[in-house]
Simulated assay, not measured.
Amino acid sequence: MTNPIQFWLKDREGLYLRLPVNPSEFTVTSPYGVSKVNVASLGEVTIPGERGLKTVSFESFFPRDYNPAYCEYSDFMNARSWVLQLETWRDTRKSIRLLITGTNVSIPVLIESFEIQPERAGHVGDIFYSLTAVEYREPSVRKVEKKANVVKAAGASRPTQDKKAPKSHTVKKGDTLWAIAKRTYGNGADFKKIYEANKATIGKNPNVIKPGQKLVLP
């Protein structure tokens, strides 16, 4: 009968390894950040924070030979290869995924500690070890956009666009309103616009303009 509890380790390169001997027990801690604040008149108040990183710890051994009494399968790596692989993951600080089937443990971790214990009597060639792994979270950086504070002075208003100054024309000898309108607007009949805008300067007769008079061309 297949054991529902299996310990698997998988790295990002696709190496997928199963522990040959299950630990007799394992410990998972999942702390929560808690702040204690002393508030006047209320006494000490506890404020819950976000969940901390999980830590998984267990002990077991890598057998030299297959023994159906405690081995989960037969075609496992030799004990020394297991030690080298775990030390490589630990020393290079590469994250791996720890999966314990039949439980809710399936998390990326970093190996925090991996210690080999002395050979025990009756286990010649077997390597005993203890391992502690800490949950790994990808670092994330949030971009914060700073908004410039714009302080408006009292009474300040939006700058207005410069209005174009009206065109003007200084009357020369031989000029007529018709001729000026023809040159300016392309139509001599528009002389009436010039006359209406300059009636105070020209006088009652639009046909009489004098050299030197400055006319506004609307």
Rank of each mutant, 00 (worst) to 15 (best):
Thr46His: 08
Leu99Pro: 02
Asn38Met: 14
Glu59Ala: 09
Asn38His: 10
Ile100Asn: 09
Phe76Ser: 01
Val109Met: 07
Phe114Asp: 00
Leu53Ile: 08
Val83Gln: 01
Ser106Arg: 10
Leu86Ile: 01
Asp65Asn: 14
Leu110Phe: 09
Ala79Asn: 01
Leu110Pro: 03
Pro118Leu: 12
Ile47Asn: 12
Thr101Met: 07
Leu53Arg: 12
Glu112Val: 05
Ile107Arg: 12
Phe62Ile: 10
Asp65Met: 09
Pro108Ala: 12
Gly122Tyr: 11
Ile47Met: 13
Gly52His: 04
Pro48Ile: 05
Arg93Ala: 09
Phe61Ile: 03
Ala69Gly: 15
Asn104Met: 05
Arg64Asp: 12
Gly122Lys: 11
Ile107Phe: 04
Ser35Thr: 13
Glu119Phe: 10
Ala79Arg: 01
Val39Ala: 08
Arg51Ala: 13
Ser35Cys: 09
Thr46Leu: 15
Thr55Cys: 09
Gly102Cys: 11
Leu42Gln: 15
Leu84Thr: 09
Leu110Trp: 06
Lys94Trp: 01
Asn67Lys: 06
Thr88Arg: 14
Ile47Val: 15
Pro48Gly: 13
Leu53Thr: 10
Ala69His: 06
Val34Gln: 06
Thr101Tyr: 03
Phe62Tyr: 14
Gln117Asn: 13
Leu53Pro: 00
Ile47Tyr: 14
Arg93Lys: 10
Leu86Asn: 02
Val56Ile: 15
Phe58Val: 05
Val83Cys: 00
Arg80Glu: 07
Phe114Ser: 07
Thr92His: 00
Leu53Gln: 11
Arg80Asn: 07
Thr101Arg: 12
Leu110Ile: 15
Leu84Gly: 04
Asn38Glu: 13
Gly122Ser: 11
Asp65Lys: 10
Lys36Phe: 13
Glu50Ala: 14
Phe76Cys: 02
Ser41His: 14
Asn67Met: 02
Gln117Phe: 11
Ser35Val: 13
Ile47Ala: 12
Gly122Ile: 13
Gly49Tyr: 08
Met77His: 02
Leu53Ser: 10
Leu84Lys: 02
Arg90Lys: 04
Ile116Cys: 07
Leu42Glu: 10
Glu44Thr: 15
Arg97Leu: 00
